[in-house]
């Protein structure tokens, strides 16, 4: 145990602030990283609107999102391994709706829940095979897992092959 604590303590984490968007004092919320840590998604609060922004973590360069500049406020962004998919909660009238933007194809995938359930928080598996949703129903919070494999191509680390399918 002593050696473990030593190894943790001996290596000091390296810190930096998230890249600024050049907007003065920014309020930034709910960070999410791509699986490889290259991209950072977060919520920017400006002029009373809470909007997702996607940046390269090291340079701060902003990346375009085709479908996610409206239906605010946004909540709970989550990224896949290479950042191909960005899942978040958007506002659709009176209801919250989970959506996934596929940055490779430009498609937007809405993920409606049955009536009576309201999504509160999301977590997208890095390979985009599953989505976890915290939903509230009757005042209680529950976490539900959904299978995305029939709908989304996997987003895997480079060099990792898709398992299953095809003949040996």
């Amino acid at each position: 145990m002593a050696s473990v604590l030593f190894s943790l303590a001996a290596c000091t984490p390296v810190r930096q602030a998230a890249p600024s968007l050049g907007l003065g004092t920014e309020t930034r919320l709910e960070p999410a990283l791509s699986g490889d840590g290259r991209l950072l998604a977060s919520l920017l609060v400006r002029d009373g609107r809470t909007t997702v922004v996607l940046q390269e973590r090291q340079t701060g360069r902003l990346l375009a999102l085709a479908h996610l500049q409206r239906n605010q406020p946004h909540h709970s962004p989550s990224l896949s391994w290479n950042g191909r998919y960005l899942a978040l909660i958007s506002q659709q009238g009176e209801r919250r709706l989970a959506v996934i933007e596929d940055r490779a194809t430009g498609q937007l995938h809405p993920l409606p829940l049955p009536p009576g359930q309201e999504v509160q928080r999301l977590s997208l598996a890095p390979d985009a095979s599953r989505l976890a949703m915290e939903v509230s129903r009757g005042g209680l919070s529950r976490v539900l897992i959904f299978d995305l494999r029939p709908r989304l191509e996997p987003d895997l680390p480079p060099g990792q092959s898709v398992s299953g399918g095809g003949l040996p």
């Binding site: 290596c11 000091t12 984490p13 390296v14 810190r15 930096q16 602030a17 998230a18 004092t25 920014e26 309020t27 930034r28 919320l29 709910e30 960070p31 999410a32 990283l33 791509s34 699986g35 490889d36 840590g37 950072l40 977060s42 973590r57 391994w81 890095p126």
Partner: peptide, 30 residues
């Protein structure tokens, strides 16, 4: 207030409240 760990386990993104503002700190783990 919030934390996200990259799937490769190398980067932490942390929402931190300072003087009434929420900011995001990035921490590279050893």
């Amino acid at each position: 207030e919030q934390v996200a760990l990259s799937a490769d386990g190398r980067i932490l993104a942390v929402q931190v409240s300072r003087e009434g503002h929420s900011q995001i700190d990035l921490i590279t783990l050893p």
